[in-house]
Amino acid sequence: MSFTESFRQNFIEDDRWQYLTEGLKTTLVITFFAVLIGMVLGFIVAVIRSTYLRTKKLLIPDLICRLYLTVIRGTPVVVQLLIIYFVIFASVPISKTLVAVIAFGINSGAYVAEIVRGGIMAVDIGQLEAGRSLGLNYRQTMVSIILPQALKTVLPALANEAIVLLKETSVAGYIAIADLTKGGDIIRSQTFSAFMPLIAVALIYLTMVIILSRLVNLLERRLTRNDKR
């Protein structure tokens, strides 16, 4: 079979290209909302953990956070996805995409938390002291002085975490979500040709990752330039 014929069969015939475009849409939706959940969750956990490390307050919340980090980082994301879908939401009617958003969000939160905690702890202790010496309380010092500086240093790492997540959502097919990877796989099962659809899927991921990495690089350069002002 010639290249063009194979191309026609895999993508044009029966509008099979729509498996890829629809799948891409699903992948992007899951990634976007999972990143949002991950960031919020990660920030909360990071603030709790660094507050405990710096002031020895919030012991109980810190213990809960540590448990969360250990469990999430110590188990495969596919297993977490399966447990959340087949165990936790077993008897709840809920959209699969929403389950995936929750699962990947909770997973990403653990990695975001460690990145942000690193950023917070990297801010010089003198900054905290300066804020407190002026009479600001811990929360005000954190919000106005520590977090803005921490955020700036970890922004590139957070953006990279989002890129990683984009690729990790490719296991969403395990709970029968028609994401990009699953879309390619469906085409393969219909046409019995693996090369075209799977390479196409890989190229789409690659293109998105390259574009996003470019944006991260731009962002990084922008941030270091601001340092020199």
């Binding site: 010089d124 003198g126 900054q127 002291e129 300066a130 407190r132 010496s133 002026l134 009479g135 600001l136 309380n137 002085i145 803005p148 500086q149 700036k152």
Partner: peptide, 24 residues
């Protein structure tokens, strides 16, 4: 209590060896 200590600190300025200005 912590809250009252913050009030006291408002009335006692502090200048540090390493300045500790807010760089951002």
């Amino acid at each position: 209590r912590d809250r009252d200590i913050n009030h006291v600190r408002q009335r006692m300025g502090m200048v540090f060896q390493h300045f500790n200005l807010f760089p951002h």
